[in-house]
Nucleic acid binder design. Structure first.
Lengths: 351, 351
DNA sequence: TTGTAAGCGTTATCAT
DNA sequence: ATGATAACGCTTACAA
């Protein structure tokens, strides 16, 4: 007659052993799929496991094997769509590999970051994925001192001592510039991310270089520095307008700033793309919500997370990764906000 | 002379004991702040702890005390801003209380949800916060069977057997309706969430009831069902337009759908708020990015998370909570998308 | 193929 | 006030 599932105390490996009439080591062997176990025994053990709904205790297992079965993810701000994307995809691949994901929101504060890493260390974290690090040396020191697998995603520094997964940011700049140039634009502006972030400089290098290669100049007054937030996009657009809107196209280093710029343009009656073409970056959900829908340089978030998780686990399993750089490719999604340059009435009369 | 920090093996309580010349029990007592320890000894132990940079192992501690020092958060989709907000604030309050946050993205799939909970159980999770339960009985059964503290946030059912933290959704409907009525609107529409989600029904009850109380009718053709996603907002606006746009104001059960509706209206030359006023719900970041900025019924995400974490920890510490319902209040943020009803030309000639 | 036993780092009980 | 020791649940030599 079927016995009601046990109440209260959770079943342990001992209970399984007892029920199956074997020793705990045999149960452990079955659990780990060891070949050195009789098929009959294995069946009995498995039945016992199912019978009492046994699940190995991860704390005990981790204590013994020095692996907490977790991966940590450090982000500066969960409410930015790009970081939310990192959480989403990192979680997916972690779970796929049998790990749980612990997330830490640092707000860019080094102390918060430090405390979070500390906690991870205490639970024998199997790997940490950093997306943007506030204080480089500090993180790297901690990570190296404790010898925990770690990778940097998205925001890499110029000369990194940790493995990184990054977009080919220079190429992103090239793509944006080529697109705008192909559309016939000759006076082009850009709203960059903070200059002290390497990827901003790389994107800009690709962008400016491409313009130059096409014989186009990029005066300092056409490159505005933003901070990746909505407001700075608005401010940049305002600045462009106040100086007489000398550009017919603008690339923003992320969608959020592009949407900010669009906002200001719409409010000032500047037509997009009629008067000025606008291209964003990241291809976040936002880009198809606004009118006109935003053209955007894409960043393969999912792929980046897959690589990051794989890298960190490879390190965990002893592979020497060094400071390998995994570079993923940007793309281009043309929507409505970028179009051919309106013909200059004087110099190019229609037909 | 200062000794270099130890390499490789992490310091354990034993190392501290040895260095301080005491037993492990004494160190443990110092750690737990027991009063039964000599001040001199305490000082020596603390010095030793600092000296070798010792941090208690959470796995060992958890194994012993049956508390993994983690809280689990289950969400259906990380890339929805409201759920990202839950993650952000839940993380904040967890960390504040000394717990780590493990997040699980279920995509609404019961199996994924089940597997995630299973994993949490195996690490002696201290509490689980569910936002939206895909398959009611299953979660509740698991949670009750293993007697793990759990609370439901946001998406609660009518008669819940678990404690819940919810918005006063009926009141949200009242607020939206009162706002629109006060603006002079008399023909009003609504885009609801899925009818099989309790909060949609509650919001609608408050909304419809308020309209009725003001002597306004709400014909079935004016209430459209959405699914909380952008596209359904677009579809709803299209439907309103196709039937002749008989309404002068619309409330959407979330910002995403409102932005979708706005998108369609803008594309069809329908002026917002000139021709139709639009009010969203949740007051997400989106609402101030669009033009016109979206008026929205607010939901205090941070407060809700604070309550959820507190509840779950109270349960963890033995308090009997039963199926208590913590209800938080919605508010109203008027921006640009809602304005006074344009005077009907025929019936109310200007001046 | 299977079992015995040690040990992972803590906490808690019981002595001293 | 402090120390020895068992126990938490698991893995893994080492024996049988």
């Amino acid at each position: 007659m079927p016995q009601a599932p046990r109440e209260g105390p959770v079943a342990s490996i001992k209970d399984v052993a007892q029920l199956a009439g074997v020793s705990v080591s045999t149960v452990s062997r079955v659990l780990s799929g060891s070949p050195r176990v009789d098929e009959g025994t294995r069946a009995r053990v498995e039945k016992a496991i199912a019978r009492i709904d046994y699940r190995p205790n991860l704390l005990a297992r981790g204590l013994r094997s020095k692996s907490g079965n977790v991966i940590g993810l450090v982000v500066p701000e969960i409410l930015h769509e790009t970081f939310a994307a990192f959480i989403k995809y990192a979680e997916r691949f972690c779970v796929e590999k049998g790990y749980d994901l612990v997330v830490g929101n640092t707000g860019g504060r080094p102390e918060t970051e430090g405390a979070f890493i500390d906690n991870l260390l205490r639970r024998h974290v199997d790997g940490i994925i950093f997306s943007r690090v506030s204080d480089r040396s500090r993180v790297i020191n901690t990570v190296e001192k404790w010898n925990v697998p770690a990778v940097i995603i998205d925001r890499a520094l110029d000369r990194e001592s940790l493995p990184t997964v990054v977009l080919d940011n220079e190429r992103a700049g090239v793509i944006a510039a080529e697109h705008l140039v192909a559309l016939g634009h000759r006076s082009i502006g850009v709203v960059t991310g903070p200059r002290d972030i390497a990827l901003s400089r790389e994107r800009h290098r690709g962008f400016a270089g491409t313009l130059r290669r096409h014989g186009l100049s990029l005066p300092a007054s056409h490159v505005l520095e933003g901070d990746f937030k909505f407001e700075s996009g608005r401010a940049a657009a305002r600045a462009f307008i106040e100086t007489g809107l000398k550009v017919t196209a603008i690339w923003c280093h992320n969608d959020l700033m592009a949407v900010g710029a669009l906002n200001t343009f719409v409010r000032h009656g500047v037509k997009v793309p009629g008067d000025v073409s606008l291209v964003g970056m990241d291809n976040t959900g936002l880009s198809e919500m606004v009118v006109p829908a935003l053209s955007s340089v894409t960043q393969p978030f999912e792929e980046m997370c897959r690589q990051a998780v794989e890298l960190v686990l490879a390190m965990r399993h002893g592979q020497r990764i060094g400071n390998r750089r995994v570079v993923v490719a940007p793309g281009l999604l043309v929507r409505e906000s970028s179009a051919a340059r309106p013909p200059a009435p004087a110099r190019r009369p229609r037909r």
